[in-house]
Design a protein around this nucleic acid. Structure first.
Lengths: 244, 244
DNA sequence: TTGTAAGGTCAACCGCGTTGGCATAAGGAT
DNA sequence: ATCCTTATGCCAACGCGGTTGACCTTACAA
């Protein structure tokens, strides 16, 4: 058992496993994403990941201190993928909106992985890059440092919190997911108007809206809130505001 | 092993366990909350809960179909506790704000339980009661059914998503929590201004704000968004708006 | 008073993360 | 080319997890 994990950039010897695979941190993370997709959130086990890699489970401890550490590496990978498919330059509001949606959908593209990682701070490089980008947009929009941090905090936590929540239902086994979605059309729609007048009156709207994410709605109200914040620097470029 | 779980209200025989305890769904849920607080999110195991109740682990399967079902019952309990400590009647904006904060703090009062349950829909009675209350406030404020449902969805998902996120860090072992919080004062504060100018410039604000929840900030922007929605009914009582 | 089955217990199954010991081959030094 | 070191892989085992099937035992209905 390793006394310490060797950092990826210091690795020299790449001994193939008995079954011929040459391991690396990137290969393990990538394989973990595949295993998560195929076997679900609880299906990422050291034994199964080892088998998928053609390696002994204990070998993973040469690369990560434990399954927890591996999970954080997976989270960092999702952050990086979001940032890769994103470009700035169309004004603070459009940039912030597109970054939020990119993060949200990067996580939802791997729901089982998102459930496992979205609530944890990895502190790794690509996560820090995302933080830097958000603060840059807000400060570039002319907000004071205090306001920039206040809204950075709101923005990133909102995005990750919704990523985790929305991923939660997507990550359910197909059958359970349909059951949950149907609940709005069955259980809730059948509550008697006498005891639950408001649910009864809106059952149709509920069934139509609840299976989708509320993230875009809340994100827009947050952007409205940012737009209403007085700027302290002259370069404020006002985005499309709710009250033009 | 039971073929089927007998619903709580149909139970007749209350045989005490070998160690004298008389079981019930309520006692089990209450004990689960205690075990969660004492042993953490991963510490709620059938064996440990059985021991805390003075019963065999397999006895739990007479009351719940599995640990998953038990978790949903715990979540329903947290919903109920929030609703118990809440009263309406001070206008839609104050009512919605206080209900959101009540839910948020009810979950944060049991962080280990919140992590386990906040992302799951229980479909049980007290959760439905919360849904009915929210829809009632919004429709009572004069919103159209469509708008009421849109903002109900945003409100409940926002609240639960933040409850889960914020509970996540509170539920960490004391040492890990301090490490996470200190990260803003150590790792982030030490990033060179050359590569991360925006983080470097705001390090002080970050260290001060990040350990707290962003929920109140986002909630207010959502309430602003609701206030800006045109009412279709005459009884709209405008709350304190951002633009008076 | 008696029969039934609800609600307990017991023992066992298999999978989990993790660890200590060991084998081997990669790659720098000579 | 050869040797030596040690990184990196494998193996076996530990304790704990959820869950199950078979089996008692006793509260209640008839």
């Amino acid at each position: 058992m390793p006394k310490k994990v060797v950092p990826e950039e210091a690795r020299r010897r790449r001994r193939p496993t008995r079954q011929g695979a040459v391991l690396s941190e990137a290969l393990i993370v990538e394989t973990a994403l595949r295993v998560l997709r195929e076997h679900g959130t609880a299906g990422l086990t050291a034994r199964r990941l080892g088998a998928a890699l053609g390696a002994d489970p204990s070998t993973l401890y040469r690369y990560f201190t434990g399954m927890d550490d591996l999970a954080r590496a997976v989270g960092n990978e999702l952050m990086g993928r979001a940032l890769d498919g994103w470009t700035a330059g169309r004004g603070w509001r459009a940039d912030l909106r597109s970054l939020g949606l990119a993060l949200h959908s990067s996580y939802l593209a791997h729901p089982q992985a998102a459930v496992l990682t979205a609530s944890r701070v990895s502190g790794r490089a690509r996560e820090i890059a995302v933080d830097e980008a958000i603060l840059g947009i807000l400060r570039g929009a002319g907000l004071s440092d205090e306001a920039a941090v206040r809204f950075y905090h709101a923005f990133i936590d909102l995005t990750l919190a919704f990523a985790a929540l929305d991923a939660g239902s997507l990550a359910l086994p197909e059958e359970a997911r349909r059951t949950d979605e149907d609940m709005w059309a069955s259980t809730y729609a059948r509550l008697p108007a006498a005891s639950h007048p408001n649910i009864a009156a809106t059952a149709g709207h509920l069934a139509a809206r609840m299976p989708h994410s509320a993230y875009p709605v809340v994100l827009e109200t947050l952007l409205d809130g940012i737009a209403a914040e007085p700027a302290t620097a002259p370069q404020l470029r006002p985005g499309r505001s709710r009250r033009p």
